[in-house]
Design a protein around this nucleic acid. Sequence first.
DNA 1: CGACTTGCTTCAGATTGTGAAGTAAGTTTG
DNA 2: CAAACTTACTTCACAATCTGAAGCAAGTCG
Lengths: 416, 416
Amino acid sequence: MSPAISPLRTIYRTPPYLLPESEARVVEILRKSGPYSRTEIADITGYSRAKITSVVNHLIELQVVEETGEGDSHGGRRPRILNFNAGFGVVAGVDMGATSLDGALANFKGQIIERRSVSIDVRDGPDSVLNCVCALVAEMLRNQEIAAEQLCAVGIGVPGPVEFSTGLLIAPPIMPGWEAYPIRNFIRGVFPSAIVIVDNDVNVMVLGELRAGAGIREENFFFVKVGTGIGCGIVVGGKVYRGSTGCAGDIGHICVDRNGVVCHCGNIGCLEAMAAGPAIAQRAVAAALAGGSPILEKILKANNGTLTAKDVGAAGAAGERAANEIIRESGRMIGEVLASLVNFFNPSLILIGGGVSNIGHQFLASIRRNVLHRSLPLSTRHLRIDYSMIGADAGITGAVYLALDHVFAMKRERAG
Amino acid sequence: MSPAISPLRTIYRTPPYLLPESEARVVEILRKSGPYSRTEIADITGYSRAKITSVVNHLIELQVVEETGEGDSHGGRRPRILNFNAGFGVVAGVDMGATSLDGALANFKGQIIERRSVSIDVRDGPDSVLNCVCALVAEMLRNQEIAAEQLCAVGIGVPGPVEFSTGLLIAPPIMPGWEAYPIRNFIRGVFPSAIVIVDNDVNVMVLGELRAGAGIREENFFFVKVGTGIGCGIVVGGKVYRGSTGCAGDIGHICVDRNGVVCHCGNIGCLEAMAAGPAIAQRAVAAALAGGSPILEKILKANNGTLTAKDVGAAGAAGERAANEIIRESGRMIGEVLASLVNFFNPSLILIGGGVSNIGHQFLASIRRNVLHRSLPLSTRHLRIDYSMIGADAGITGAVYLALDHVFAMKRERAG
DNA sequence: CGACTTGCTTCAGATTGTGAAGTAAGTTTG
DNA sequence: CAAACTTACTTCACAATCTGAAGCAAGTCG
């Protein structure tokens, strides 16, 4: 059953819905940090209670905001609790990997109401993959019996460098044929009522942590994704930082060993080539062939001579020393790089995520030990290093918030 | 002769002078990016021409802004050029080093009208040194025949970590006795009409470059100071970035060689211990004693067995191979660290400054070569690496702008 | 010279936001 | 338990802020 079309939708055919500054600020506050009373909003914004009353009442009229009961008294009249109207519409978030597509449908509070994954190959090119994206979203809408016109926004994280303002990929190493492909137009062709926002996958993941994970109250932190490659999403001042040409956070090609192995980028001893999934797997094969690890040797034989980082994790969990040594070694190299970045950037939090990150507790322990050992005490005194709070969901969660963040905008924003 | 007291000074006894948002924005624009006509200001701010007319006229009445002649016609009436009133008052900027104090007096456009240096020793403690600071400023005011009451603000850069909001030093390694010393109150005791802003020396230097040097049009860049230590000031989004606990940019203790020398911080192979002034000098002594460099050997004998980085620069300029090798080696290590930071941070510019930086062109060349070799092409495509534009003046220039930036503030700024 | 362009000003009135007073609904206290 | 307080919200007259339209000023262009 498709929900009734709300007043705003009848005024503006399609997002972004433009609101006056005061209303946009109230919406943002309610949207991002949960329910408040009118008085609380007045205190947060600095507006008078009178102004907030009128703003809130108008937002209620527009059905953007709802009154959901009363809170506890603090010695006087009970506050009336205001909530962002989760049912105002739906957004979709899509996390594109090299071989898979994870999608989610969420309400306007970012709560995921449906999810779905399919296998793809990005090398099939944009037409094929984007058709899958649209089919994925369409199927989720069908399952939830939501009309396509109720879809307000689609956020997409892609595994390559993105020029954020245009949503175009620039020289993506693992996505041949995607260079400057008009992803937005493609999706809008299928879902005309939705705006489309594209960003790099780690930027999307760090946004997920910023909004719904461990980064909620953090100003400056980063999210390190360890998988086939190693990338990093950065938050500065509560906002995702993309660098001057949009490729900030590419820590996978920082050199950790001048005498290391050759990386696919052409350089020698890149972190990615030394410590990511394939490197771990390769070292595990060597250890198995050398007879250092009976368990890995067994798996190796069962799998036609190949191993994965996951296998190393399993062997490590079983107590195999060689496997744990490989895990610690990977953590050591990542930790050393992160130590440098801690000295430079002085974050309050580092989150570790990605497929390889749950290879065993030795991994995080090794990262922590090396960061703390190698950074200045002043910069690590209040530094937390943890696994991603939302783990495998960071991608779709971030994509959902990426979409949500662009549904409402400020009318007549002044030039900077 | 002391200039006449302006209307604003009679309203507010002391800065910050609070202006309504519209006026504060116009002041900031005129102050930071030079003269504009009323129409240009309207275009930049997004305000209507009508509004700008009334705002500007009020600012002229307050003597904050001046009309200075007419510009060229663009096919119609000539624009009337508006300038920030440089003569509104004066500010002082002080760059505190371990052994010296550099001060400047500047008008309200940041133009330096007097400068002066004295030798000090920060280890004498805050009372002694801050007396020198006040004497320095007082003497400059006397020389220019400016009454002390005309001094609106004092900006100070200090060689230690500063909690910016309070202006207090936190665990400064080379400034014993300065921990949490109330620098602001001390200075205000002598100059009651002035506000006092304290920041870390590299933050001040990068601010100098941001406002009056190579960083004027840059959004994201950093300034690397190579001297006795190695530090780094960071600009993100056109603002100085200080990190979550205020110690961002401490790149001197990033590890460059696991088998390197022991640093005074206790770690091994810190960039500072391997590539800064003392390390260069030490390597030069070794080269001289080994007989690899006749020139250095000669200077060594003349100087009672000691050498400085400057001597190495001189020997290198004379073509001595061993000296140039030392210079290149230092540049290599700095370049490797910067390459990592480029991959992470994706800046559009890196500025190299500090006493050791003008040791010879080999130094910058070596840094450049190593950064470009070690970073991804996408992140270096638009990256410039240059010497500081304002060189030895970066400190006092930055301190002047630090002061200026706090003279005017916005009235009733809304809570974030 | 007249038509057009750019730069600035004036002013009525729309828009936005406030403070003070009042209503509503609870807790605390004598 | 009623009076006194506290917190939460609303109403409304009015203040502050900003704009659009109209017009003046002073130049260029054909």
